[in-house]
């Protein structure tokens, strides 16, 4: 465990000393919130998707894709600068590395979640809507953990298999997917076949479950409830989580002894 903590500390320093984290992981969610708040205001506040409590789970899930990007950048850079190669010849094992990266992703992700919640709270004050209770806030954080974990491992995975030039590109594909297919700012429930497709991926079900917790209303005026969409949605959420963990472990082990 000492080796994990040691590596975790280094990764945290490495990330916190790079301005990119503040732009992507903290600035971006706040900016999105403000943007949709303004849009909603100028459209006379009649877009349910843009209501604070509906936005909150969507932005949280979307912002996790920036955790993925951050990790992919760190891991691929560590590879590119041969920092990892050197550590591979030390007594560190693959799980030390993976956990050391994972915990940093977890911390950054949780901080982001907090920033999103605080921003949402402030906007709810400004626009005079009541916010969710503390227990709902906690439940929301826990409910979004699986999709956060998925994003963290995907980030480590992409950093491991791609170089520092192509990893960010691959991630931006996932960032777009997470944004569009998560239904953060699109009323997916009105889109028929597209909705069905989104239910096979983890993003939309995660946002959906989040919206049950924030007690928000969908585009056709129905309050989100724990129905089949949420229930069956748990399947892709957990399959993607397990899949990303397994793939990361396999890829990382392979990278430790390689011809590259």
């Amino acid at each position: 465990m000492n080796k994990v903590i040691n590596f975790y500390k280094r990764n945290l320093k490495e990330i916190l000393r790079d301005p990119i984290i503040y732009i992507f992981c903290l600035g971006f969610p706040v900016a999105m919130f403000l943007l949709f708040y303004i849009i909603n205001k100028f459209s006379n506040g009649n877009t349910p998707t843009f209501e604070v409590l509906s936005l909150l789970p969507g932005i949280i899930v979307f912002s996790y894709s920036f955790v993925m990007l951050t990790l992919a950048i760190v891991v691929s850079k560590d590879k590119q600068t041969f920092f990892l190669k050197r550590l591979y010849s030390s007594p560190m094992k693959s799980y030390h590395f993976i956990l050391g990266y994972f915990f940093v992703g977890l911390i950054v992700g949780l901080l982001q979640t907090l920033v999103c919640i605080i921003t949402g709270f402030i906007i709810s004050l400004i626009s005079n809507v009541s916010f969710i209770s503390i227990s709902s806030v906690l439940l929301l954080i826990i409910a979004q953990l699986p999709v956060l974990i998925t994003n963290i491992f995907l980030g480590i995975l992409f950093g491991t298999i791609f170089n520092d030039k192509s990893a960010p590109g691959i991630c931006s594909v996932f960032i777009s997917l997470s944004g569009i297919l998560g239904g953060c700012w699109m009323p997916i429930e009105t889109m028929g076949a597209f909705e069905l497709f989104c239910r096979f991926l983890p993003f939309y079900p995660s946002v959906y479950i989040g919206r049950i917790i924030t007690n928000s209303t969908n585009a056709i005026g129905i309050t989100y409830s724990f129905n089949n969409v949420a229930f069956l949605g748990l399947i892709p959420i957990f399959i993607f989580m397990l899949g990303s963990i397994i793939l990361t472990v396999v890829a990382f082990k392979k990278n430790m002894v390689s011809d590259k």
């Binding site: 320093k13 490495e14 000393r17 600068t81 041969f82 050197r86």
Partner: peptide, 14 residues
């Protein structure tokens, strides 16, 4: 063992 690789691999932000 330990190695100083051909590339100066250190943690750049530390």
């Amino acid at each position: 063992i330990d190695i100083s690789p051909q590339e100066t691999s250190v943690a750049n932000n530390l």
